[in-house]
Design a binder for these strands. Structure first.
Lengths: 180, 180
DNA sequence: ACCTGAACACCGTTCAAGT
DNA sequence: ACCTGAACACCGTTCAAGT
């Protein structure tokens, strides 16, 4: 009654829950509780949970645009990775959203633009797809690993090498292959 | 009472449901119904749903080994893609399983072996990771798209180009980049 | 227009009790 | 050893009814 419910506030609450407990803790009922509101109230401002996940993904990806991005795919990849890492399970959420609405201005579009300067339209499209699949997959695994260690299913001992080096190795291999 | 319940039979029933309705239809209760058994009975043979998903993933990936695989990453990639396409949401399931138990003999291990002949251990590891991330991402998107068209959220009009060409373009770019 | 209360049709998982 | 019955603690979503 004090503050009106908004898509804005719902996404904000969702991000709070995500940072607290990850994707496993993100239920419509938890979001409603966070906002001290009945679960049904959310559906006035948001069509469904899938719809909400897409909104969250947009917010996560939007922070990529804030960083200084040149026409270098390498820098764009690093900026996207940083953006995804700001929220627990961020890569999985963006992955999901991209699968759901392939038309929106997703990471794919960013890379398509960057690659369009050096490649044909077809190859820029396919190249952008290759890069985004790798990035989302790599960061998702990075975050999943962290999640499993948090829960205790995995220990620090059997952790893979998910440093920035491994990430950049993949990015560099792909970009090198695209221009050959 | 006639036939005993087994991990085998549970995975079989799960695959039937997957082919019928995809991952969205795969619940422990549905599997139990398919086997004409109480839901709780499954937990005598399987630790959890996550555990079961890993078993399903193993079964899907196992069909890759049946195909004639040379030391060519290109052929291995195609074989894996074919195996993933045999089950609805196959890529997503294998993706999930790989994130859950990074130690098992997954697609990653196959590519690591193939690449080990031409690359250093570190680069073979990172290269294998790059390839599997791309493959699982690409096929998952391919299958998600098909799912959304089935449901009617997407039409045939706004479908992307997910032909084998796009897939091979990515594979060839990565393999080319790895050797440069 | 915006929200509550209450319901509907589901989930995964556990566990006494039966055989 | 293996399975049933029944419960526990959740879900996403809808919708009359209130304000």
């Amino acid at each position: 009654l004090l503050v009106a419910l908004t898509q804005q506030r719902i996404v904000d609450a969702a991000l709070v829950i995500l940072r607290r407990g990850g994707l496993a803790a993100l239920s419509m009922r938890q979001i409603a509780a966070e906002l001290a509101v009945a679960p049904g109230a959310l559906y006035w401002h948001v069509k469904s949970k899938q719809d909400l996940l897409a909104l969250i993904a947009d917010r996560i990806v939007a922070t990529t645009a804030d960083q200084p991005s040149s026409n270098d795919p390498r820098q764009l990849a690093l900026a996207l990775r940083t953006a995804l890492l700001t929220v627990r399970d961020g890569a999985e959420i963006v992955s999901f959203a991209q699968a759901l609405q392939p038309q929106s201005r997703t990471p794919l579009a960013m890379f398509r633009e960057v690659l369009a300067s050096t490649l044909s339209e077809q190859h820029a499209e396919w190249g952008a797809r290759t890069l985004t699949h790798f990035i989302l997959g790599a960061v998702a695994e990075e975050q999943n690993q962290a999640e499993l260690i948090r829960v205790g299913i995995l220990t620090d001992a059997d952790r893979g090498d998910y440093s920035v080096d491994a990430f950049l190795f993949g990015i560099d291999a792909i970009t090198a292959g695209l221009c050959s």
